[in-house]
Design a protein around this nucleic acid. Structure first.
Lengths: 195, 195
DNA sequence: GTCTATAACGAGATAGAC
DNA sequence: GTCTATCTCGTTATAGAC
């Protein structure tokens, strides 16, 4: 009985998150309001407070939700090949994931919601994902911090440009493999200047 | 007399834009409200409508204001050197400009304000800036559309990462010259696959 | 867990006097 | 050009009944 009850609770939370993502996709992340979420779920706005502490807490739940989805996709992918192949596969998953939903990209990789900061627990998810890239990058021969930063800039840049200027298309994302290899093969692995 | 009057008007508009940018810098672009802008300028909120048609119109004025500032900086820079030198100089100006103010970056290069789209006049300013990069890129030997996209992704990516993860620092921006040269020297100038 | 009712507030926008 | 006054609407959040 208790199990059934917590299952229902989980289901409701799922509905709430889905509704929030739907609103964000239609009208922007900043357009998510508790009234509209409740309306779509089919309950009254005060009832949301059973599942969510506050509006910022809802954003945090969305943040964590997104990373869990990302991990699911990463784990569902094939695992073999060279380090470079694995890195390219991971990069493709992350870029597609980021480009698929502009508000999700905004929530995860921008700091654009006034007052929102991921909770420690949510931030840890982000850190875990980054660690994955760091490890593969090192295994592929790019171990320096500068190379990691160049790599993240490439992935973030392709994603940002794709979403802002060709939403739904492939104009920027198709250059992912080329550009990651550019960083792997030609980015200087030693800092030229120490200042 | 008419001149004096339009001068006062211009001054007020300047005050209004400055106040809006200040609020955005302190609390985020989405936190700009007409009430708060008016409070800082020292007038009442309805008086703003003499200078601005609506809130979205204020955002558009900020958009145009930012590009005018960018052009001022570009024209103030020295003009000589090889095409590559000029391109690196322009890129540095744009990147510094973009990183200097997170809300400005958000307004210019993201599509994050629900309902806001730059007016045709404002959009033309953006197009003019991009054209400048396109010309220099071509002169530096990178004439293909793919190279232009790789270039904009690099600049946008460094800016986005810098603002999101090391605001006020140089962790990403210092790699600008290295990465632009990477695109110039090693990005394939022919599309490898036509699909 | 969901409801009604409502508090408390702030937003953008308009009318009309001065 | 600036003001007061106000409309209308929406927001987050809480209290308390069922």
């Amino acid at each position: 009985m208790t199990l059934v009850r917590s299952e229902k609770r989980t289901r409701r939370r799922r509905q709430i998150l889905d509704a929030a993502w739907a609103i964000a996709a239609e009208s922007g992340l900043g357009a998510v309001t508790l009234h509209e979420v409740a309306r779509r779920v089919g309950i009254r706005q005060p009832s949301l407070y059973v599942y969510v502490e506050s509006k910022l807490n809802l954003y945090d739940a969305m943040f964590a939700d997104a990373y869990e989805e990302l991990f699911t996709r990463i784990e569902a992918a094939p695992a073999g090949g060279t380090a470079r192949e694995q890195l390219l596969r991971l990069s493709r998953i992350v870029l597609d994931f980021s480009v698929e939903s502009p508000p999700r990209q905004q929530l995860l990789f921008g700091r654009t919601i006034p007052g929102f900061e991921p909770s420690p627990a949510s931030y840890e998810l982000a850190e875990r994902a980054l660690q994955r890239g760091r490890n593969l990058l090192a295994a592929a021969g790019a171990a320096s911090p500068a190379q990691l930063d160049a790599y993240t800039a490439v992935v973030a840049g392709l994603g940002a440009q794709q979403v802002a200027n060709d939403p739904g298309g492939r104009r920027w994302t198709r250059h992912l493999e080329t550009m990651v290899c550019l960083v792997l093969d030609h980015f200087p692995d030693q800092e030229k200047e120490l200042q």
